[in-house]
Simulated assay, not measured.
Amino acid sequence: MGQLEGKTAVVTGGSSGIGLAAAERLVAEGAHVFITGRNRDALDAAAKNIGSVTAVADDIAAAQTIGSATAVTDDIPAAKTIRSPPR
């Protein structure tokens, strides 16, 4: 049993690089992971390779898509949505 068994994580940029590595590690520790990214094909490939993840194709930086990211966290018990201040 991993340290994160029964926990849920949201990883932005989860289809490649550090985000993908983080998602893989979180899953290895037992968490269910939501990965987000702009490229649906890359997300689907990452989700297939990782296993227990939910892929959400979205541009998290675009103001009009914040609602869908918030909708993802609404499904997570006790989740907090952290937003960066406007640039």
Rank of each mutant, 00 (worst) to 15 (best):
M1Y: 04
G2T: 00
Q3N: 10
Q3W: 04
Q3E: 14
Q3P: 02
L4R: 14
L4N: 12
L4H: 14
L4I: 10
E5F: 10
E5V: 11
E5H: 11
G6Q: 08
K7S: 12
T8F: 08
T8W: 05
T8Y: 09
T8L: 08
A9D: 07
A9V: 05
A9Q: 09
V10F: 15
V10M: 14
V11D: 07
V11I: 14
V11T: 05
T12R: 01
G13I: 09
G14T: 03
S16V: 08
I18T: 12
L20F: 15
L20H: 12
L20D: 09
L20M: 05
A21Q: 14
A21F: 02
A21N: 08
E24Y: 00
E24F: 01
R25S: 10
R25T: 10
R25A: 13
R25W: 06
R25G: 07
L26W: 04
L26T: 03
L26I: 04
L26Q: 09
V27H: 09
V27E: 11
A28M: 08
A28Q: 15
A28G: 15
A28Y: 09
E29V: 00
G30Y: 06
A31L: 12
A31Y: 12
H32M: 11
H32A: 08
H32L: 09
I35T: 01
G37Y: 00
R38A: 02
N39F: 02
N39C: 07
N39P: 04
R40T: 14
R40H: 13
D41H: 12
A42F: 00
L43Q: 09
L43P: 10
L43K: 07
D44C: 03
D44R: 06
A45Q: 14
A45W: 03
A46V: 01
A47W: 09
A47T: 05
K48V: 03
K48W: 03
K48Q: 14
K48D: 15
K48H: 10
K48A: 15
K48G: 02
N49G: 10
N49V: 01
N49D: 15
N49F: 04
N49K: 13
G51E: 11
S52D: 15
S52E: 15
V53H: 05
A55S: 10
V56F: 01
A57G: 11
D58Y: 00
D58Q: 11
D58V: 13
D59Q: 03
D59K: 00
I60G: 01
A62W: 00
A62S: 12
A62V: 08
A63G: 02
A63Q: 11
T65I: 02
T65L: 00
I66R: 13
I66C: 05
I66E: 06
I66Y: 07
I66N: 00
G67P: 06
S68V: 13
S68Y: 03
A69K: 03
A69F: 02
T70Y: 07
T70N: 05
A71Q: 12
V72L: 07
D74G: 07
D74N: 13
D75G: 11
I76P: 07
P77V: 08
P77G: 05
P77I: 08
A78W: 09
A79Y: 06
A79R: 05
A79L: 04
K80Q: 14
T81S: 08
T81K: 01
I82G: 00
I82S: 04
R83P: 00
R83K: 10
R83C: 13
S84I: 14
P85E: 09
P85S: 11
P86G: 09
R87A: 13
